[in-house]
Design a protein around this nucleic acid. Sequence first.
DNA 1: TCTGGGGTCCTAGGACCC
DNA 2: TCTGGGGTCCTAGGACCC
Length: 417
Amino acid sequence: MSSNDVTYALCDVNSFYVACERLFRPDLKDKPVIVLSNNDGCAIAMCDFSKSLGIKIGTPYFQIKSLLKRHNIEWFSSNYGLYGDISQRFNWVLQQFTDKVAPYSVDESFLMFQGFSGDLTEHCQNLKQTVNQWLSLPICVGLGPTKTLAKVANYYAKKHKQSTNGVVDLRSQKNRQWALEHLAVENIWGVGRRLSQKLKLQRIDTAWDLHNCDYKTLQRMFSVNMERTILELRGQPCFEFHQHPQAKQSILNSRSFGNPITNKADLKEALAYHATRCCEKLRKQSSLANSIQLFLRTRHSDHPQATLSLTEPSDDTSLFLQAIEQGLNRIYRPDQVYKKAGVMLLGIEPSKGYQADIFNQTRQRPELMESLDTINAKFGKDAIKFGSLGFDKRWAMRANARSPHYTSRWNDIIRLK
DNA sequence: TCTGGGGTCCTAGGACCC
DNA sequence: TCTGGGGTCCTAGGACCC
């Protein structure tokens, strides 16, 4: 089968976080809603009405506070437990329509159709309707011969929801040219603010302009990714389709503090917490890491940082906690005010097949880690934990309006009276 | 006063080696 | 005093994505 038979579909939930918040709150169906980032810092998702007021993604909460009140807009702290669970259900529905589903982010997935006989547009209309019926999520679908063109199609489906009924097909050359001619270069997937500025200096203003460029020249001027984007705009697939999540090459956990911190003991607890979460993610993907980086952020936007290597790769939380303590001693300054802390694991490799160094005296306790994970999976996060995590979480972030974890915590299940 | 978090990939430049 | 060239590996920083 030639690659000409391959079509990609990008399915994306409209205002996903807002849609999730509305799921269990039918009273919010026609009411404006926005969702704030972690720590209730800024707006990260909103309904069309809020957009029409000029609120942009990333606007700080304090700047829109009065606007929200004036227009009676309901706002929520983000609830990633809920969004993650709904996302899984979304992908499950997509799998009823093709066995080739590649989740791309929490709210969008690529599908691949190969040698599909029948009307693909109709199939996707059907898919869209099913997602809406089963999960009550509004989605848009873009079809194209490459992922980049499917993204372009999705852009138009979202922009013209009414006239397209939420599905746009850019497989034909004629539709494609029109779509690219009317698409500003900054709206192409992979072309951000900086690159579009530079492209415009070269008089490359639209996706069609970029499509017609000499890709070798632009590869030299920019990078291989620019070359790939151009080829994808011409219908030649360059970006891979990963059906299964790839093992992460770095694992990061970080949070801003609810209130600024100066105390070393509090910082240590926060870092221990982040290291614990990182190690859980590491074990979940069956990997080992050989180094850990901890970083702090002060009021003055500088970020002291320390990277420590283990004597051999490990997934044992306690080894990383020891490293944290050493690292913090190196970078902590009592006269500083800290806003944020984080931990990153690096040098990641699969644990399967790892040849342990027989001369290494470091304790590795896979059974202990496994028991820890099993207990916490059953009884909830940190049901059992290392003492260095502490108990009072004085550093915890703000989340003043978080909705219940309707689908993932027994205590949060809706009760009917 | 208050501005998120978690990733990927690419490139440039320095260290080091032969 | 003169002091090459090519390769690899690592890291930091930048750009992008959602």
